[in-house]
């Protein structure tokens, strides 16, 4: 059991990295990765929200399923996530001001992030149990953070380099760099069979 959970966790981080091989959460990946210290904050907030979103949406899906209206999951999930992020923001502000100060700015960025909706839907589609779903959410969040951290280093080099051709300066160079980082993650493919 423990080995099985570890496999889910590691494949979510390395093999099926949410950004580099599943293409979710590209906006924050390209938008926020410029400054290293923001990446950690963003990553922590994403891990937190993914875990909570999974904990909230999983039982709700079971409820929808028992009522035979599971096709409403997209509507229900996105509403729950939006509601939940809003709620967390209010609660944190009130009872844990230091944490709010650290994560507060990142929280609203996450509501319409496809990575969060994506992970909750993947958990359902894969037929995970609650425990597996939580482990997968944790792994996915960690994978997001790892990708963001790695890429922010690459990005700083590229942005400060003068040898990038004018035609590629800006987004094209960033995308080509992302492709190389993604290529390196392909090396993890086949880690588990």
């Amino acid at each position: 059991m423990a080995v099985h959970l570890l496999v889910i966790m590691l494949s979510a981080i390395l093999v099926n990295n949410i950004v580099l091989s599943q293409f979710m959460g590209i906006c924050p990946f390209l938008g926020v990765s410029k400054v290293l210290k923001n990446c950690l904050g963003m990553g922590a907030a994403v891990i937190f929200v993914m875990l909570c979103a999974t904990a909230v949406t999983y039982p709700v899906y079971k409820l929808l399923e028992s009522l035979d209206i599971e096709y409403l999951k997209t509507v229900a999930f996105i509403l729950l996530i939006a509601l939940f992020v809003q709620l967390v923001e209010i609660i944190l502000k009130k009872i844990m001001p230091p944490l709010y100060k650290a994560l507060g700015v990142y929280l609203p960025l996450i509501t319409t992030n496809c990575a969060v909706l994506g992970v909750t839907i993947t958990n359902i589609d894969e037929g995970y149990s609650f425990l597996e779903a939580m482990v997968n959410a944790l792994g996915t969040g960690v994978g997001f953070t790892v990708a963001l951290l790695l890429f922010s280093g690459v990005r700083q080099k590229i942005d400060s380099s003068d040898s990038v051709p004018a035609m590629f300066k800006g987004v094209p160079a960033t995308l080509v760099a992302a492709s190389i980082v993604s290529l390196s993650f392909m090396g993890f493919g086949g880690l588990f069979s």
Binding site: L20, S21, Q22, F23, M167, F168, V171, P172, A173, T174, L175, V176, A178, S179, I180, S182, L183, M186
Partner: peptide, 16 residues
Amino acid sequence: PAGGFFTLGIIIAVVN
């Protein structure tokens, strides 16, 4: 996946 990032980067560069 790697090819996706690469192709989009090239297309955006060429369009501009």
